[in-house]
Design a binder for these strands. Structure first.
Lengths: 214, 214
DNA sequence: AGAGACAGAACGAACGTTCTATCTCCCCAG
DNA sequence: CTGGGGAGATAGAACGTTCGTTCTGTCTCT
């Protein structure tokens, strides 16, 4: 999911940190300015990394002033968390849409195929969650927690899909799929995406689909 | 390979950038101070990320002054490249040592087992190359090039091992193994290492060892 | 009138980097 | 054996830049 496509403002709740008291406005909703900031941040963070892009770059590319930025976000740390959470929300929405028109048995291969396509698309730079995690080593950091929550949800989704498809050992097979997904994301970002996509599809076929059904 | 253990000063060549002219001494060899700096950098970079640790932290923990640091490294960028290259050299040395006393057929399972152990060890924070790559998106960056070179070498090693072990399709199977390795590294760093180690071992067994021999 | 976005200056801190100056140790000429 | 001399390490101040953050205004809407 490397595409910007920020049309959804899903679940962009402010979720203020306990002690954080904004000296400014009470609580601005998802305004146009806020969306522009989050979009620019998403694009820049994903393409160039998080610690390397400063708020100057973000506000400039968003066409927003610093004052506006700090009206909508307590600080950069909070923006990063929102960046992760918004990407998470986007993927959950996609998954929900896919599940609405496909059976669990059909959905898994589609998921893998879509992953392979994305890896080969332009601007692909690996999994945003994995990349972000590399920059936030502390597991207790809010950003790391948001990443962990996304991964937990995703694994849960895969387990559910495998269960409903009647695949034996759904939990162990979900672990395997996560392994393959993560490896593919990394390998495609660092090497030959097309080759990785082929390897991934083959591995999934042999390990999951081929294990009980062919 | 998360352990510090910097006893080897392998291949710590200066390799000055073309235009870089040090206004200081001609070319100091691998001195004690340089080693201490590189060791501290290795420990900090791996544990906390690269962009987050400044030279202040490094020189402080190395017990070295800034002047000494800049006598041995043209700048931080060069230190980061040395950090990657030294880790690469350490792994190559380990591989060479392993190959000296094991046959290719024996070596591969040992490699996987050792990987599983390392993942579960204390202080494990994922693959240093994958983590560093997340912070250096530009493929032309010297750091990214060093990472790519290490990965190329490692894949070559795996291909050679598979060939000499008589495994069919060594190239495709090497891609698969890389996929699994990368996935395991990421998964162990972000989730349950022991579970990932189990998944990895099982996947390798089913995909490589089990494909022609059991 | 009042809230939100705009413009832009300014803050202190940290960044990577350079400088001056003193000290220590080893090598080699005397 | 002695005693410079030079290279490397030390200490610490200081450079300019950039960082994240805050402030003072003005403008534009409803």
């Amino acid at each position: 999911m490397p595409a910007p496509a920020p049309q959804v403002g899903v679940a962009a709740r402010a979720c203020s940190t306990v002690g954080g008291v904004s000296t400014y406005a009470p609580a601005p909703a998802a305004s146009a300015a806020r969306t522009r900031v989050l979009d620019a941040a998403t694009r820049l963070f994903y393409a160039e990394g998080i610690h390397t892009v400063g708020v100057d770059r973000i506000v400039t590319e968003a066409g927003v002033t610093r004052a506006t930025f700090y009206r909508h976000f307590p600080g950069k740390e909070d923006l990063v968390r929102s960046y992760v959470q918004e990407w998470d929300a986007r993927i959950r929405a996609e998954a929900a849409a896919g599940l609405a028109e496909l059976t669990p048995r059909e959905f898994l291969p589609v998921l893998v195929a879509r992953l392979g396509q994305e890896m080969c698309g332009p601007g692909f730079r690996g999994c945003p969650f994995i990349n972000a995690a590399a920059e936030y080593p502390d597991p207790q950091d809010p950003v790391a927690l948001a990443i962990a929550e996304h991964r937990r949800w995703f694994r849960g989704l895969v387990v559910r899909l495998l269960e409903e498809a009647g695949v034996p050992e759904p939990s162990a097979r979900a672990d395997l799929l996560m392994l393959l997904r993560d490896g593919a994301m990394v390998g495609a970002a660092l090497g030959d995406p097309a080759g990785v996509a082929r390897s991934l599809e083959r591995a999934v076929r042999e390990l999951v689909s081929g294990a009980d059904r062919t």
